[in-house]
Design a binder for these strands. Sequence first.
DNA 1: GGGAGATTCACCCGAAAGTATGAGGGAAAA
DNA 2: TTTTCCCTCATACTTTCGGGTGAATCTCCC
Lengths: 143, 143
Amino acid sequence: MKKTILLYALMMAVLVWLMKFIDYRFFVRDITMEMYVGLIGILCTALGIWMGLRLTRPKMVVTEAPARAFLPNEKKLSEIGLSEREFEVLQLMAEGLSNQEIADRLFISLNTVKTHASNLFMKLEVKRRTQAVQTGKNLGILA
Amino acid sequence: MKKTILLYALMMAVLVWLMKFIDYRFFVRDITMEMYVGLIGILCTALGIWMGLRLTRPKMVVTEAPARAFLPNEKKLSEIGLSEREFEVLQLMAEGLSNQEIADRLFISLNTVKTHASNLFMKLEVKRRTQAVQTGKNLGILA
DNA sequence: GGGAGATTCACCCGAAAGTATGAGGGAAAA
DNA sequence: TTTTCCCTCATACTTTCGGGTGAATCTCCC
């Protein structure tokens, strides 16, 4: 959280610097005020989208697609000892995503996904992601 | 989606108008260029966050429910173009077996399994076995 | 304030998976 | 007979996975 805000500030700083740079290089020519403002708007919007996604990331991916009510989560999960994050990774695995894609989706690094994967494999006593998915379904923790 | 973009455009319009308004009312006094740009940045960031949240909001995934019992094999399979052998491989994949294990189970070589795997991936338009399994279930050709 | 667990990330390394290409044989259709 | 599709297998190469280790933060709880 703090890191995100810091990162945002940093990106803003870069943005401001970039703007100044553009100023010095091109403003004297034919960049109009409208274009300048538009550019700022676009960049800030992009940053905002990114920010929004990052800040609301801890939002449960859990309640995303379960169609019908599906919530033997708490009980089963604590039985098995799966943490929330591990479960999220497992769910995305079940959707057929690669580790890299999971990393992008959860805004974490590839290495972190691997760590979660290894841990949940241990807890589920499996060796491959496909087995993990299968086991997850059998245990009733995956749709 | 379209509505969101439209809404966004609308808000941008309002924003621009607001800016103009502020211009006429106060720019002549002590609003500096930096404050002006900053204001735009903040507003656009807010809009961006809102946009991001709206666009990535969990959407209802309408999964094709299997409903009826399970045997649309022939039909679906010929639709997709999966051969019998490829389907066998897919089924064993769904059980979480590795390529080597599938090879042993079917009494064929590892390379052959890989070939079947590649072919069925093409036909299902996926890149990974986990995706293939997922897609297979959605298509109703896997339990 | 310190411990426990969760989360994050990094590095290395070997194994498994997947891609691309070629090729031989069998069975059925043209 | 020729064509076509399927099954089989191989080699070589790239990418992804998974194991192992270590470590920095953070949060929650005692």
